[in-house]
């Protein structure tokens, strides 16, 4: 464990908690892409199946359980509890255009052709594109509440910090996980445009982040 990975996990946890609390307290999921949240729940489900097969550390196990609980709770809020505030019109990204290529690639490019390893690979590839429905929805509605922008900031920072973690681990222990690194770079690149908008608009205090 290193400071980059730990702060990355903290940012990830903060992002997930920001989103959950925003929906729970405002009793509304307006402006939130339910599709992205379903994809994230799928990412955690396919990645954390090793909860039942291998024990790594208390931290690892606790964080996986917390991520799974919060992800499914958020999906539950969006599609059940506050479903009348879910804007399915704007959440129109065709997720099959993500799932099919990601599933295909995970069968072609993986470390081992075993169910658990292919599912892990699927979750890594899927995570790199899971935010696209949310970013697409924001461009479609033309604006996002600043709380949603803060959510995206921490979510983007988390994997950017993981890139630093992989640099550090490569430098200190020769660790190199190509599938995770390449996917992490792609994932972080998708946030670059948003980071620019965030630091030029949201931080100017203009309550909502309106896209050009």
């Amino acid at each position: 464990m290193n400071i980059f990975r730990l702060s990355g996990d903290v940012c990830h946890l903060i992002a997930i908690i920001i989103l959950f609390l925003k929906i729970w307290r405002s009793k509304s999921c307006a402006g939130i892409s339910g599709k992205s949240q379903v994809l994230f729940a799928l990412v955690f489900t396919t990645r954390y199946l090793d909860l039942f097969t291998s024990y790594i550390s208390a931290y690892n196990t606790v964080m996986k359980v917390v991520y799974l609980l919060l992800a499914y709770s958020t999906v539950g809020l969006i599609f059940f509890r506050f479903r009348n505030s879910y804007d399915s019109e704007s959440d129109s990204f065709r997720v099959e255009f993500l799932l099919v290529p990601v599933a295909g690639l995970s069968f072609l490019e993986n470390y081992a052709f075993t169910p658990l390893e292919i599912l892990w690979t699927f979750s890594i590839y899927l995570e790199s594109v899971a935010i696209l429905p949310q970013l697409f929805m924001i461009t479609k509605t033309g604006e996002a509440e600043s709380i949603t922008a803060h959510y995206l900031l921490f979510l983007g920072l988390y994997r950017a910090l993981y890139l630093a973690n992989w640099l550090w681990r490569f430098h200190t222990e020769g660790f190199y996980d190509q599938i995770a690194v390449v996917s992490g770079v792609v994932q972080t690149i998708f946030y670059c445009d948003f980071f620019y908008l965030y630091f030029t608009r949201v931080l100017r205090g203009s309550g909502k982040m309106s896209l050009p």
Partner: peptide
């Protein structure tokens, strides 16, 4: 561990 198969990261 350093082998990527044993995924020790979240």
């Amino acid at each position: 561990s350093s082998d990527p198969i044993h995924h020790d990261e979240l």
